[in-house]
Simulated scan of single mutants.
Amino acid sequence: MDRVRTGLERLVAAPRTGRERVGLVTNPTGVLPDLTPAAPALLAAGTRVTTLFGPEHGLRGTAQAGGGEAAAADPVTGLPVADTYGRTGAELDALVAASGVEALVFDMADVGARFYTYVWTMCDLMGSAARLGLPFTVLDRPNPIGGAVAEGPVLDPAFASFVGRAALPLRHGLTPGEIALSANRATGAALEVVPMEGWRREWHFDRTGLPWVMPSANMPTLDTALVYPGTGLLEGVNAAEGRGTTRPFELVGAPYADGRLAAALNGLGLPGVRFRDTSFTPAYGRHAGVPVRGVQLHVTDRAAFRPVLTGVSLLHELRTLYPDDFACDPFLDLLWGSGSLRAHLEAGRDPRGLCPPPGPPEGDLLYD
């Protein structure tokens, strides 16, 4: 099997000679193929890393969704750690400036869904770098669910938030470096992307030859990432998205659901997926400790599978089968990138027409 060489691996193999104080933005996914973390790898290569910056879930990945880690020293390198989560604009600028770094380097994995937040930490810090006059380098990594297909609506700028800063489709098909290049038209940072070698857009992560490291606590496997652009939408309704189980986002359900849900979903003939009737009790998260009925998604054909259409279809069947119990939260608007999906669901209208046909990704593409 051919193996992809990440931006980190390429930089370590050909380190820079400058002696500027570097701030490294990373988390557990920032590793070499032998699992050496980025910070000690760059230090050993001669890069003068002086501060580590952690995103949502933290530098070490110990925090659940919606949290960061308290600032502390990194136990591996002894370097100071700054928590960026929840900081934007002037507050984030002040955090970077107080660290005394003279350049920022970003190295962490994305999962291919617009509402996953690491690339927005990247973009927020690119803005700080532009305002502070610091160079910004992105060490590129694969899109684990492939870069050949984009699916779902493009974000309406009126609904921009930390779960979507830029006008990208919900499943965007881009790498972090490609997103950085596109976003930098507005940001104006002194940006460099160190691209990968050997990555092909049609590849899923298990074709890259690289080790899978959990990007966050509820993203344990590639299977999770495959369904996440669709079932992640359940975080905007009163159903369990599988947090608190060993199959988050593959198991979904609700206390009010019954066996009709699996039958209805299988009856739709959605491409590349089947639904198994199941019951589970989340250990934490929504409906923690409450037995729920629902489905497990089994992806049978990755190339045909349409996660966004699948997620929207799941919401539509929950609303159709259980109209007196199903409810949406305004957070769904931020996840979807506009108010159209919630409006359709609350009115009882079929929202599947809101899913445009999948197509190739658009933007500053670095790879064939």
Rank of each mutant, 00 (worst) to 15 (best):
L354P: 04
T245L: 01
F53R: 03
A38W: 12
Q296E: 15
R141Y: 07
T231K: 11
R352E: 10
D329W: 12
E56G: 09
G311T: 04
G337M: 06
T224K: 12
E91V: 14
A167I: 01
A130W: 10
E346V: 07
D2T: 13
T224D: 12
E20I: 06
E69Y: 04
G359H: 09
G242D: 06
N184V: 03
P195G: 06
G54I: 00
R141S: 11
P357Q: 11
L268F: 06
L191G: 06
W336R: 00
V49F: 01
A239C: 15
G236Y: 05
A63E: 10
V312K: 03
G311W: 04
R87I: 01
R207W: 02
L270F: 13
G112V: 03
R260K: 05
V25P: 12
A225G: 11
G232M: 05
W203L: 00
M214I: 04
T278K: 03
A263K: 14
N266P: 00
L261R: 13
V292E: 09
L8A: 14
D324F: 12
A82R: 15
H298Q: 14
L92A: 15
W203A: 03
M196H: 02
H298S: 12
V4A: 10
L309G: 09
A71L: 02
D206Y: 09
A263N: 07
V163D: 03
E317K: 09
L95I: 11
V119G: 01
L125A: 08
L191N: 08
E91Y: 13
Y322T: 15
F326D: 10
V252G: 01
R286Y: 13
R165E: 06
P291M: 15
T224H: 13
T246E: 06
H172N: 00
W212P: 01
L365P: 00
G359L: 03
T310K: 09
D333H: 07
Y256T: 03
T278R: 01
V4K: 11
G112Y: 05
F331G: 00
L43P: 00
C328L: 03
Q64N: 06
A97I: 05
D83Y: 08
G127L: 08
W120R: 07
R302T: 14
F115M: 02
F53A: 04
L251M: 09
V193P: 02
R352H: 08
R141P: 07
A41W: 09
L345I: 10
T26K: 13
F305R: 14
M196E: 04
V273R: 00
V252I: 08
V101N: 06
L174I: 04
G58I: 07
P195I: 08
P55V: 04
G259R: 15
V194E: 10
V163Y: 03
A186Y: 10
F305D: 11
V295Y: 15
P135W: 04
Y116N: 06
R319C: 09
Y228D: 09
G289A: 13
T246M: 06
H344D: 13
R274S: 13
V312R: 01
R302H: 14
S340R: 13
L155A: 01
R5N: 11
D364H: 12
P135I: 00
L35K: 11
I145T: 09
V273W: 08
D140L: 04
A70G: 08
T36D: 02
D110H: 07
G236H: 04
A109N: 15
P40F: 08
C123K: 10
S279H: 15
